[in-house]
Amino acid sequence: MSTAASTPLFACSRCFSRHPFEELSPGEQLCKECRGLFPVVKCTYCRSEFQQTSKSNTSSICKKCEANVKLYGKPTACEYCNTIAAFIGNKCQRCANSERKYGAAVTCEQCKQRCAFDRHDDSKKQVDGKLLCWLCTQSLKRALARTKQHLSVDKHKHRGHKLSSHKDKRKSDMMKSKNSGDSLNESQPSEKKSKLNPLQGELDPNSSDHVVAMTQLKETIASLQKKVQQKEMELLSKDKLITELKAQHHNNTTDLRNEMKNKERMNETKFTLMNTKIQNLLKEVATLSKSAKKNNKNTKSLLSNTENSGSGTDSPSTN
């Protein structure tokens, strides 16, 4: 039995041809011919995997998020999963749909964020019996797939050692026992290695999970910095408004004071004019009253003279 024949093969999800697991793309499980030698990348915004369809277009944004950017502009961080995919409101479409379908969000047992949704079904069995959010579920599935791949490779190596030891019939029984002991000794480190490899893959700083985590942290930091800048701009605008209001209040107070002073001056001027006019009128009244008295006196004297002259002319005629 050849080593190639013992390698487990997996079917392509598009053409159903069988290939080794490492030759299939993660997520969509496509062979090289079906994916056209174009890489499968993760969307910068929603973190879902998609396949690039052109060598000239190496965008890391999926078509759905690209359309949403054109419609609604750049997204903000989701209040649940912290992915930069909230185009409408404060929630991404994935969390909004899950909340509408499964109820309020609960705490993820892996990342300890309030971004998981309990489906109340057997979906937890697929992720090691834990209630995880979508991002942690995808990360754990990739880790389990790598573990399965490492175990299958180590099992294949162990089986190859066994076959080679059984085919060597020309050696003595002592050499056979030694070879069998060596094969057992070699199988134990391989099993230990297979158990350690998944951990090493998870702890590898260049692994996809760490890249995703670093990208999420950078996006979260960028989102927080953007919020801080917005708050600073709001504070600056409020300070500017307060300064303008203070200046307007000062100007209004100054205008009112000047207006009151002008009115006081005008009132004083009017009062002075009225007093002057009253004094003039009083003088005129006094003059008129004096002249009237004088005229009355003259009139009385004329009347008395007239009476006297009249009485003097009448007396001789009577005698």
Rank of each mutant, 00 (worst) to 15 (best):
R100V: 12
S60G: 06
S304T: 07
Q126A: 08
F87L: 03
S152Q: 10
T107F: 08
K297L: 11
L24F: 06
T58K: 12
E33V: 01
S190W: 00
Q225Y: 03
C81A: 03
F271W: 07
T306S: 12
K55N: 10
K124M: 08
N90V: 00
K178V: 14
K294C: 12
C92D: 00
C115R: 04
L184F: 02
S54F: 07
K55V: 12
K192E: 09
C95R: 02
S13D: 08
T272E: 08
D255N: 13
K155L: 09
G201K: 09
M266P: 00
N319H: 15
S183E: 02
K261C: 03
Q126T: 09
S164L: 10
E259S: 13
F117N: 01
M1V: 01
Y72T: 08
E244L: 12
M233P: 00
C136P: 00
P26S: 10
E234H: 10
H156R: 13
I61R: 02
K227D: 12
K171T: 14
Q216L: 14
K263E: 07
A85I: 00
T318P: 05
K63H: 10
D173F: 06
C15R: 04
P8T: 14
K64L: 08
P26L: 04
N298M: 12
N262R: 11
T243F: 11
T318I: 15
I61C: 05
L288F: 13
L196K: 09
E66K: 15
S60T: 09
N267V: 15
A85N: 02
M214P: 03
F271K: 15
C115P: 01
S48H: 07
L135T: 01
T220W: 01
S6N: 13
E23R: 05
T276E: 09
E284I: 12
G312W: 15
L203S: 13
L71T: 11
E49N: 04
N206D: 11
T287A: 07
K290S: 15
K261F: 12
N68Q: 08
N295Y: 04
Q149V: 03
C12T: 07
T299D: 01
G129N: 01
A104R: 07
E66N: 11
S177V: 05
K162D: 03
L241N: 14
C62N: 01
K112D: 06
E284W: 06
K178R: 15
V69Y: 07
G310C: 13
T83G: 02
C108W: 04
C108P: 00
L71A: 10
L224E: 12
T253E: 08
A104I: 04
Q230Y: 00
D121E: 00
F38Y: 07
S183G: 10
V69H: 01
D239G: 07
S25N: 03
A85M: 05
L303N: 10
H166L: 15
S172K: 05
K74P: 01
R119K: 10
Q113C: 08
A213S: 14
T147V: 06
N57Q: 04
E49P: 04
C136Q: 02
C108N: 01
G129V: 03
H210P: 00
S48E: 02
Y72W: 14
D128G: 00
N275E: 11
A145G: 05
P205Q: 09
P20D: 01
S223E: 03
K178T: 15
K91M: 03
S223K: 03
Q149H: 06
F16N: 11
T53K: 15
K171C: 13
M274D: 10
I84F: 07
T58S: 02
K293N: 14
A213Y: 01
K101S: 08
P26Q: 03
